[in-house]
Simulated scan of single mutants.
Amino acid sequence: MKLMKTEDAVGQVLCHDITQIIPGVKKGPVFKKGHVIQAEDVPVLLSVGKDHIYIWENDENHLHENDAAEILRQLCQNEYMSASEPSEGKIELTAEVDGLFLADTERLFRLNRLGEVMVACRHSGFAVKKGDKLAGMRVIPLVIEAAKTEAARAAVGTKPLFRLVPFRELKVGVVTTGNEVFYGRIQDSFTPVIEKKLAEYGCRMAWHTVLNDDHEKITAAANEMLREGADMVLCTGGMSVDPDDKTPLAIKNTGASVVSYGAPVLPGAMFLLAYAEGNRPVCGLPGCVMYAKRTIFDLVLPYLVAGVPVTADQLAAYGNGGLCLNCSVCTFPNCGFGKA
């Protein structure tokens, strides 16, 4: 790369985009990288403040910003993502499907700690829609040493930094529990909430039963749904520590492997997560899921629908950010709930 007076640069090759900004009208490149400067271009370049211009000189020890950005893209992009064309050293990734966006935050930190290169992404662990912006990456200097991109490769390794896991169209079984509902003392207002949340992810309730607080019946109903092919079973109600609350015992007796009974999230502390044969989730949903705007169920449901296992460590980590502030206008997931 060589700096020249603009008037002397006719016939030379631009090594970067030249941006023109007209407030309220335009912001974009007036000339693109690789453009051969003509005599008629000189007044235009001077009008955008370019009294001097960088022209390209080949150097095997350095990379142009766009070429280096392409290396960053290779380190970041995985399936179900599309990439923009490099422009001024920047590339953006966009979702090609609805799914769960996941970032390896430790390796992302190592990359950004190198300096002269940067990658920024939306928060990991949340649902995205097709067309959503996922990440952006940029090279800071116009020209970067090739050794810096090699250091980036070493920091990231061969596995891409980001994953987008498509959502599955699950068939879900719902076991509604509680004497008050079973005997008709109150209306079942829990099941409609569950159906609505499932529909947000393209899933449907294929089995439903209402039972009293008999743990043997709850166990039998959940197991029957699993035998008939349910991809997930949700048991609603009966999740507290009252003597009549038998749902946790019923789920344990299905034979499913319990990940955790309880989570450091409010609302949703009494949530229970287990996995039956075939890694099919069996969940006990506390009553707050019925009336609170957002709960622990909203944090884990994208993982369950994507088929990404939820671990006890992940649940424990929700303690940092796991307090919903119950805002008068809910903006979830564009808020701090569930984000460390």
Rank of each mutant, 00 (worst) to 15 (best):
V175A: 14
A340F: 01
V289F: 03
F126W: 11
P333G: 01
A199K: 15
V175C: 14
P281F: 06
P264Y: 05
D8R: 07
E92N: 13
N334L: 14
K33I: 13
H62V: 11
Q20L: 11
C288G: 02
E65G: 04
N212T: 11
P302R: 00
H208M: 11
G184A: 02
K159G: 08
G157T: 10
A269N: 00
T247L: 07
L198E: 04
V25E: 13
A155D: 13
E228A: 14
P23E: 09
A135K: 00
I55Q: 05
F31W: 03
L325P: 00
L93S: 13
D188I: 12
L325E: 11
A103P: 04
K148F: 00
I53N: 07
K339I: 05
L161M: 07
T94R: 00
L45N: 08
S82E: 08
D98E: 13
L325H: 11
R153I: 10
E216N: 13
E65Y: 07
T254Q: 03
Q38P: 04
L72A: 02
G24E: 02
V259Q: 02
A120W: 01
V233G: 02
A147C: 05
G99V: 11
F162W: 00
F332P: 04
F182E: 15
L161N: 04
L226F: 06
G178M: 05
Y80T: 05
Y80D: 12
V25P: 00
C235Y: 06
I18H: 05
G237S: 10
R153K: 15
Y318S: 03
I53V: 15
V310K: 12
A269E: 01
F101S: 08
